[in-house]
Amino acid sequence: MDVFMKGLSKAKEGVVAAAEKTKQGVAEAAGKTKEGVLYVGSKTKEGVVHGVATVAEKTKEQVTNVGGAVVTGVTAVAQKTVEGAGSIAAATGFVKKDQLGKNEEGAPQEGILEDMPVDPDNEAYEMPSEEGYQDYEPEA
């Protein structure tokens, strides 16, 4: 019985440690998101679009440190934060509304985080759909 109880105690310690790591990862992701939003706020009209992409990228980098179902929630929060940063930029006159959601080359930025393969159960990952990809044929 002692062996059984000791095993359960060790398992509990492992769960607590994993929860603490997840909590730490979420806190880091939130900190990076805040950094990115402050970065966007300090940019001029020309830099705002690039700044919004930076927020998304920093958040995406930190999301990889967070495991399990938390990833889905962090990704949703990050996307809403990026959308909010863009709205703030438009409201303050840093950028025109028609410039939001495009990178410096004018290509749409939507789907940055949505296409990231995420499995809350950590069982399997699927690649994003290939609808947006084109076949590449090298020139002879």
Rank of each mutant, 00 (worst) to 15 (best):
N65A: 07
K12Q: 05
G7Y: 07
V63C: 05
V70A: 03
A89T: 07
L100D: 07
L100R: 08
Y133S: 03
Y133K: 03
A78I: 12
F4S: 00
Y136G: 06
M5D: 00
E139V: 11
V66P: 01
V74G: 02
S42Q: 10
I88H: 02
G93P: 05
E83Q: 10
E35A: 05
T44M: 15
E123K: 08
V26P: 00
Q62I: 08
E28K: 06
T33F: 02
N65M: 07
N65D: 04
K58G: 00
K80M: 09
K32F: 12
Y136P: 08
Y133L: 12
G93R: 03
E114G: 11
A19E: 00
M127A: 03
V37Y: 08
V63T: 02
G31M: 15
V82F: 10
E137L: 08
E28G: 03
P117K: 07
D119V: 05
T22E: 00
G73N: 10
Y133G: 10
L113N: 02
G86K: 09
A140D: 13
E139D: 08
A11L: 14
G106A: 09
T81M: 11
V66Q: 01
E83L: 04
G68H: 12
K45E: 00
E35Q: 04
E123I: 09
T22H: 02
V48C: 06
A56P: 01
E57M: 06
V15D: 00
K60F: 06
E28P: 01
E105L: 09
V52I: 08
V70W: 15
N103I: 04
V16E: 04
K34F: 05
G25E: 08
G51V: 13
G31L: 12
A107Y: 05
G41Q: 07
D119N: 06
G73M: 15
M5I: 00
I112H: 09
E57H: 05
N103H: 07
H50W: 12
E131M: 02
A107F: 06
D119P: 11
V66W: 14
V55I: 13
V66H: 03
V77R: 03
A53D: 02
S9Y: 15
A85L: 14
V40S: 00
Y136N: 03
T64I: 14
M127P: 04
G31D: 07
D98E: 11
A91W: 11
V71H: 04
A78R: 07
S129Q: 07
G93E: 05
Q109I: 10
S87T: 07
A140M: 07
P128I: 11
G7P: 01
G14K: 09
K6V: 03
K80R: 08
A140V: 11
T81Y: 12
V63W: 15
K60T: 06
E104N: 06
E114K: 11
L113D: 14
G7V: 13
K45A: 10
Y39W: 10
N103V: 13
V63P: 01
K97N: 12
N122V: 09
Y39K: 06
D119W: 04
Q134S: 08
V3I: 03
G86E: 13
G47L: 13
E28I: 06
I88A: 03
E131V: 11
E139K: 10
V15F: 15
G106P: 12
G41W: 08
T75Y: 15
E35S: 06
G132T: 13
A91G: 06
P138Q: 04
A91E: 05
E61H: 04
S87L: 15
Q109W: 06
I112W: 09
K34W: 15
G25I: 12
V40C: 04
F4V: 02
G67W: 09
L113V: 15
T64E: 07
E57Y: 11
A29S: 02
V48I: 12
A69Y: 12
G36Q: 15
E137G: 07
A124H: 09
E83D: 08
A69P: 03
A29Y: 15
G47N: 10
E35V: 06
E20S: 03
D115V: 11
N122H: 07
G67M: 14
N65C: 09
E114N: 12
A27M: 15
K102E: 15
P117M: 07
V49F: 14
E83Y: 10
V37K: 01
V3N: 03
E104P: 09
T59P: 01
L38T: 03
T64S: 08
G93M: 03
E61T: 04
V37R: 00
K96N: 15
Q62H: 07
E105I: 01
K12D: 00
A27F: 12
K97Y: 15
H50F: 09
A17G: 04
V70T: 02
H50K: 09
I112G: 10
E46M: 12
A91M: 13
D2I: 02
D121A: 08
G51K: 05
A17F: 02
Y39H: 05
A89E: 03
E131I: 11
D121T: 13
A27I: 15
Q79V: 07
I112M: 06
A107G: 10
I88R: 03
E57D: 06
T92R: 06
A29C: 10
V95M: 02
D121H: 11
T75N: 07
A30Q: 01
T59D: 00
A17K: 12
A140L: 10
E83N: 08
K43S: 03
I88T: 03
V48K: 01
Q62G: 04
Q99N: 11
Q24M: 15
G86P: 06
S87G: 15
E61P: 02
T33C: 03
E13W: 04
L38P: 00
M1H: 00
K6M: 07
A107M: 10
Y133H: 10
T54C: 14
M127R: 05
M127K: 10
V48W: 15
A29D: 00
V26K: 00
K32M: 11
A107C: 05
A140H: 06
E46V: 08
K34I: 08
G93T: 04
K10L: 14
K10Y: 08
S129Y: 12
I88Q: 03
G73F: 06
E83S: 10
T59N: 01
F94M: 02
G14C: 12
Y136E: 03
V55R: 01
K21T: 05
A56H: 07
E137D: 09
N65F: 09
H50V: 03
A69V: 10
D121Y: 12
M116F: 08
M127I: 11
